[in-house]
Design a protein around this nucleic acid. Structure first.
Length: 561
RNA sequence: GCACCAGUAGCUCAGUGGAUAGAGCAAUGGCCUCCGGAGCCAUGUGCGGAGGUUCGAUUCCUCUCUGGUGCACCA
């Protein structure tokens, strides 16, 4: 149908088909006809006023059998396609495009580095963002046919472990760490900083311990390994709650024997220079501060390990892209590291290394801070949300089976959806009443809509294979819903291109809203079997679309809630 | 000081080089003896400011104001 329109216009206006196709890519406003042709795009090329062009083309096209009417409105040519033909095309296209598999990413590999918590630190509301966004990107790229490697680049190496060891030896105990886990490690870490503010020599001790770790000191490594194991166990609990997994836990420590190679490469390329006792790559030429490679005590730093990780990943997976989902405050760091890779003669670094920043999370307007106690842990948020859902279920649907399972799906879904609904880059001010609100633009609303679809289909006689009488779906609400559903394939591509899960989240919301209007306007369970079947087809398509869209966000759909 | 990011309705946020800039929250009023009321419908003086490019700018450019973040031995 779209092709027919393009034929019509290109013949009538004597224009290149590709050009007409491009112009038709601009989506028409919802109530402005089934296809709108914005002629102002041609104004420059043809040196005529847009309305003139519209009128001319309209006259040449005249009466065509697929069109209901043709209307010139300002600089737009609006095509009103015969509605039943339009509906038929929409349904058939969606059946293939929405629910078929994409081959767009076939043979391509994408590495996503996300979540990557710092060992021995609490997994708080800020870490939740990278985890949720990264997981959604994994789903989106997988849907497009890419092979995706999910990498958890744990912050399990670095000077902070020197600090922790010093603190543990001075103020900690085995019993306390075993009892309170990460919370105790966190306490020790905070204690260290308080003391180090008064006594700078503690920092030197910490560096010394880290240097011991780098040189394979057994005592240091035993303690370190213990801390890592304790932390990892807690993180995995949170991932399980979120329903997420990783393909690889390759923390910074994994690269500790690979940093020497990085240093050698840089030396060989003559990029390394000494500055204030440390080894750096000068990036002045690129308007950036130098990239620190080796500290004055000879130990590695995170940039070194990031470089090692890039080379390792490139060699192991030969990725087309490697994405880093971290806070926007690390933007400069990644710009520096990527530039260094490029300077080593790797042209691929330019396009394939991508930092995906997200905005800062604050708490009720104040900065997150462990020291002042202004912090919320990821697990607490999830559990709180699940609890709230239990309350709502008890009130609205007390007879529901598997309440706990549903509460988990809906509660976690609420948190995920809330986090993915806005653009990544926006700063987030965490507010309990927002997060725990389930009305309006929320995950539970979309899930609720899904449940309604499921409920309708459960309760009626519906033959999914019967031929549809398209002329029965010509009302405004049905067509609006169909148009919405048909956007799905493009939405997924846009989301992938922009690295923005919110595009999918917004889409899911739009579909849910369109469905609700349809639901209120058109009864599905009617006597007339043909009408019932036609509408049920729409319900079925909505249901599948919502499920697939939410799945791309890492959110599940209960059949009842 | 330099750099990066953001500024759209009371609040939280979508959106676009072009038709009348949209949702949700909050508020008020309404909705089917009928498929799930976590729903639907109605009510809106808003693109931080000033220039510029353009037939047309909320969108692109410059300056400016406000907020956030970063700027070597933390990650």
């Amino acid at each position: 149908m779209r092709d027919q329109i393009i034929d019509l216009i290109s013949t009538a206006a004597n224009l290149d088909k590709a050009m007409v196709s491009d112009i038709l890519e601009i989506p028409p406003k919802a109530d402005m006809g089934d296809y709108a042709f914005p002629c102002f795009q041609l104004a420059k090329t043809l040196r005529k006023a847009p309305p003139m062009i519209a009128v001319e083309i309209a006259e040449k096209i005249g009466d065509v059998d697929i069109l209901d009417k043709l209307e010139v409105k300002g600089a737009y040519l609006n095509f009103f396609i015969k509605k039943d033909l339009f509906v038929k095309t929409m349904i058939e296209t969606a059946d293939v495009d929405n629910f078929g598999s994409s081959t767009m990413g076939e043979g391509k590999t994408i590495c996503i580095d996300y979540s990557s918590p710092n060992v021995a630190k609490n997994f708080h509301v800020g870490h939740l963002r990278t985890t949720i966004i990264g997981n959604s990107l994994y789903k989106i790229y997988s849907k497009l046919g890419y092979n995706v490697e999910r990498i958890n680049h744990l912050g399990d190496w670095g000077t902070q472990f020197g600090k922790l060891i010093v603190a543990y030896k001075a103020w900690g105990s085995k019993e306390a760490v075993e009892k309170d886990g990460v919370a105790e490690l966190m306490r020790l870490y905070v204690k260290f900083h308080e003391e180090a503010d008064k006594d700078d020599s503690l920092n030197d001790q910490a560096r010394a311990w880290f240097t011991k770790m780098e040189h394979g000191n057994e005592e240091a490594l035993d303690i370190w390994k213990w801390f890592v194991d304790i932390s990892l166990k807690e993180y995995k609990g949170t991932y399980a709650l979120l329903g997420m997994e990783f393909d690889h836990y390759l923390g910074e420590s994994f690269y500790r024997d690979k940093t020497a190679d990085v240093v050698k490469r840089l030396q060989d390329a003559n990029l390394l220079e000494e500055s204030q006792g440390a080894q750096i790559v000068n990036l002045e030429e690129y308007d950036m501060p130098p990239c620190l490679i080796m500290k004055k005590d000879g130990s590695s730093i995170y940039a070194t390990r990031d470089l090692a990780a890039i080379f390792y990943r490139k060699q192991r997976w030969n990725f087309d892209k490697c994405l880093y989902v971290t806070g926007q405050e690390q933007k400069l760091h990644f710009a520096q590291v990527f530039k260094v890779v490029e300077l080593l003669g790797n042209d691929w670094a330019k396009d394939s290394l991508v930092h995906i920043p997200y905005g800062l999370v604050s708490l009720e307007g104040a900065k997150l801070s462990t020291r002042s106690g202004n912090i919320i842990y990821a697990e607490d948020i999830l559990l709180e949300a699940i609890d709230k859902v239990k309350g709502v279920i008890a009130e609205k649907n007390p007879d529901l089976e598997n309440k706990d399972e549903v509460a988990k799906i809906v509660g976690v879904g609420a948190i995920l959806f809330h986090d993915l609904y806005n653009q990544r880059i926006k700063d987030v001010s965490f507010k309990w009443d927002k997060v725990l609100n389930f009305d309006g633009e929320t995950g539970p609303y979309v899930q609720y809509t899904y449940c309604r679809c499921a409920s309708i289909l459960r309760g009626i006689d519906y033959n999914a294979d019967a031929a549809i009488d398209y002329s029965l779906l010509l009302d405004e609400e049905a067509i609006a819903l169909l148009k919405e559903i048909n956007r799905f394939p493009q939405v997924v591509k846009d989301a992938a291109e922009k690295y923005e899960p919110c595009v999918v989240a917004r889409f899911a919301m739009d579909v849910a809203q369109s469905f609700s209007r349809f639901y209120n306007a058109d009864r599905v369970n009617v006597e007339n079997a043909a009408l019932r079947n036609a509408r049920a087809k729409l319900v079925d398509m909505t249901k599948r679309t919502l499920k697939d869209a939410l799945d791309l966000l890492g959110i599940q759909c209960p059949e009842q809630m």
